[in-house]
């Protein structure tokens, strides 16, 4: 994952390249954002909604290109708007897969329509812009774009951290959260709108089709390794950042591999490794806990009897008590 010790000067030299600086700056910020938001996407079982939002990003971007306005305007308008609508009208798990799938394949079809308008209108509009929207161009972004991406990502991370606590509560126990006064009904659509904003931000780096590599794989890997919510949350962010760094280094040393591929491949490898190592890590984490519990044999039977499967589904407060 990191460069070998002998190549430390080489690593420093990589970072002196302006395009690599831009890629690392934007990539790190966006990866952290995608990993953290992705943790909740996976926890709430909204992976397909996220998939649908990344399709909307494609159509929004091409509509903006066809209309000749800033691509970011189309991206954010489409993803945030559709995310909010999905959360508001769809409800949680109410719309079935056939409805979501058919609607979003039409939205993609609409994207192809805008693509043909765009390519026939502009003399310079060749397939390159389309490929960039689909598969991203993290190595081709300007310094201004990189900074804008980093600031956007930082802002969205702050928004997520502000709602993280009630969101976790509402995700694990919606009824309990509602009873405690958490605005569950507003939180759902708001969160999907946030996921839309993340899809719009991330699609400028890795492309609308590959946002998923950062949004789903790192959190899934983190959840394989730990059942504690906040540990998994931060681990997901760290895994996403590690995937971007590893991907950028890989594409630098093997230029024949496009950056979008190495990024997603790194995230996939992380998940595969976590899936293989998961049982071992969890067993190791359980052992000291069990030993501690056995030593204080006066612990209430309810807690002693709790196995890791049910523990995962309990709110953080209970989690802390149990440990």
């Amino acid at each position: 994952m990191t460069a070998p010790a002998a190549s430390v000067p080489a690593a420093a030299w990589i970072l002196s390249q302006p395009y690599m600086q831009n890629a690392f700056l934007a990539g790190t910020a966006v990866a952290l954002l995608a990993g953290l938001v992705g943790y909740f996407v996976v926890l709430r079982g909204q992976v397909f909604a996220g998939d649908a939002l990344s399709h909307a990003a494609y159509t929004g971007a091409l509509a903006a290109l066809a209309a000749g306005v800033d691509i970011r305007l189309g991206l954010f308008a489409a993803t945030v708007g559709i995310g909010f609508a999905l959360g508001f009208f769809g409800g949680r798990g109410a719309a079935d897969d056939v409805v979501i799938g058919t609607t979003f394949s039409w939205i993609l079809g609409l994207g192809v329509f805008f693509l043909s308008i765009f390519t026939s209108n502009s003399a310079t509009g060749n397939g390159a812009a389309n490929v960039r929207v689909l598969f991203g161009s993290i190595l081709g972004i300007s310094t201004a774009t990189a900074q804008a991406e980093a600031w956007t990502a930082a802002g969205l991370i702050l928004v997520l951290l502000a709602i993280a606590r009630p969101l976790l509560y509402a995700s694990i126990d919606p009824a309990g959260a509602a009873a405690r006064g958490v605005p569950v009904r507003i939180l759902g659509p708001f969160f999907l709108a946030l996921v839309g904003a993340v899809a719009a931000t991330a699609s400028q780096l890795v492309g609308a089709l590959l946002v998923f590599g950062l949004l789903a794989a790192p959190p899934a890997a983190a959840r394989r390794l730990t059942s504690r919510p906040w540990t998994a949350f931060w681990l997901a962010g760290a895994f996403a950042v590690a995937a971007v760094w590893a991907g950028l280094l890989a594409t630098y040393y093997v230029p024949v591999l496009p950056a979008s591929f190495t990024l997603v491949a790194a995230a996939t490898v992380e998940y595969a490794a976590a899936a293989a190592a998961g049982p071992l890590v969890r067993a190791a984490a359980r052992r000291p806990a069990r030993a501690a519990r056995q030593s204080e044999s006066l612990a209430p039977a309810k807690i002693r009897g709790s196995d890791p499967v049910t523990r995962r589904d309990r709110p953080a407060a209970v989690e802390r008590e149990a440990d």
Partner: peptide, 16 residues
């Protein structure tokens, strides 16, 4: 739809 978070995350990873 969505299914268990873990399983759909795997499908999403495979697709990406």
């Amino acid at each position: 739809t969505g299914g268990v978070g873990e399983e759909s995350a795997v499908i999403g990873t495979v697709q990406a």
